[in-house]
């Protein structure tokens, strides 16, 4: 079956086409607005991060996704779209587009929770039409091993930090979340405090490779709390006061702060995830979301996790529509469709 996925919940306008054949996933195209340049005759792409020009971007991105996948409407079996969570006006551009396509092309429509899609990214092979997943922890040689349940999912991005318990591949139970800032947001804001630019994740990580992770002692918020909630607001404030106290920062101090901050955040994420895995006696840990592109997080997880660990390939960690289509597959299995006239967006 061929599924067209649409994602507009936050910054990215994204459309993808995937093919699923007896449970095997293949990405035929995966177009994300910030990563492409489209000829002006299709309307052009507006690349600014917060510009929210989903409406302008939607048709060129859709068009590109169909061309790259070499499919036309006849070959598409299902339409999938993110309907929650996100910014209402952004979500609406995606859902309205999906509704029109579902109605005009007469294809069943599936609504997708963006957060679940980040977990289902682990079922996708890396890259467009790429080789089977090579991202699996120390079983890269055996990528076709089935994903075992129960499992714990960690979703960690600029907007979310959540731990999920999955008793099977269809069920999601939130067991913890951030009480203030998301982990990715902490990266962005600390990058701002250090004058490193946006987005913060990649620049902090780059700086951190040159610094000592024990140069400064930053708080690991809620690391010993009995629940599975997180807090990343305090560490931001702690970095701020450290920087204020030091006045002019040397390069060594800057790299030290970056490395110590990154280590503190990763320590909390790893410990809480492993604690959850132990408590719920799971067989697998699944990661997802933009922050899982962080190399230290990937490496520390690989080092410390002693059950199966799956991490999406780098290009599938951040927001994209292939993961939306992948998530839809699991709803298709249960024949969980939504008529186009009944699609609702749920921002929170």
């Amino acid at each position: 079956m061929i599924i067209l996925g649409i994602e507009t919940s936050c910054d990215e306008t994204a459309v993808a086409v995937i093919k699923v054949d007896r449970g095997n996933f293949k990405i035929l195209s995966n177009v994300v607005s910030s990563q492409i340049a489209i000829h002006a005759k299709f309307g052009g792409i507006v690349p600014e991060v917060a510009a929210r020009n989903h409406l302008k971007n939607m048709l060129p991105v859709l068009n590109q996704a169909l061309i790259k996948a070499k499919v036309n409407q006849k070959k598409i079996d299902y339409i999938a779209v993110t309907n929650k969570p996100g910014l209402i006006t952004s979500l609406l551009v995606g859902t309205e587009t999906a509704k029109v396509l579902s109605y005009v092309w007469k294809k069943p429509l599936i609504t997708v929770n963006h957060l679940k899609a980040h977990i289902y990214a682990n079922w996708l092979p890396s890259g467009v039409g790429g080789a089977p997943a090579s991202h699996r922890n120390d079983r890269a040689e055996a990528p076709d091993l089935p994903i075992k349940f129960p499992s714990i999912g960690l979703i960690v991005s600029g907007g979310h930090t959540e731990l999920i318990y999955m008793k099977d591949k269809f069920s999601f139970k939130n067991i913890g979340q951030t009480l203030d800032d998301a982990a990715g947001e902490a990266f962005d804001k600390v990058a701002k405090i250090l004058n490193l630019g946006y987005p913060g994740g990649p620049v902090i990580s780059k700086m951190a490779t040159k610094g000592k992770p024990d140069a400064f002692d930053f708080p690991r918020g809620m690391i010993n709390s009995k629940d599975f909630n997180f807090s990343f607001s305090g560490i931001k404030t702690s970095v701020l006061y450290k920087v204020r106290g030091l006045k002019k920062l040397s390069v060594k101090q800057k790299t030290g702060i970056a490395a110590s901050f990154e280590k503190a955040v990763v320590d909390v994420l790893v410990k809480k995830t492993i604690d959850a895995a132990t408590k719920y006696k799971v067989k697998t840990i699944l990661l997802g979301g933009g922050v899982t592109a962080n190399k230290l997080l990937r490496n520390e997880m690989k080092k410390n996790v002693n059950v199966d660990l799956l991490i999406p390939s780098f290009n599938l960690c951040t927001d994209n529509a292939a993961i939306i289509a992948a998530a839809a597959y699991f709803k298709i299995l249960k024949k969980d469709f939504t008529p186009w006239s009944e699609v609702k967006v749920e921002p929170n």
Partner: peptide
């Protein structure tokens, strides 16, 4: 955000108020 958490609690909102930096707006 901390002050806003207090305002929300004062209004009787039980949901956890998280930072809307990334998504811009939460209702």
């Amino acid at each position: 955000t901390t002050l806003i958490k207090g305002i929300a609690q004062g209004l009787g909102i039980k949901k956890i108020i998280t930072s809307p930096t990334f998504v811009l707006m939460k209702v």
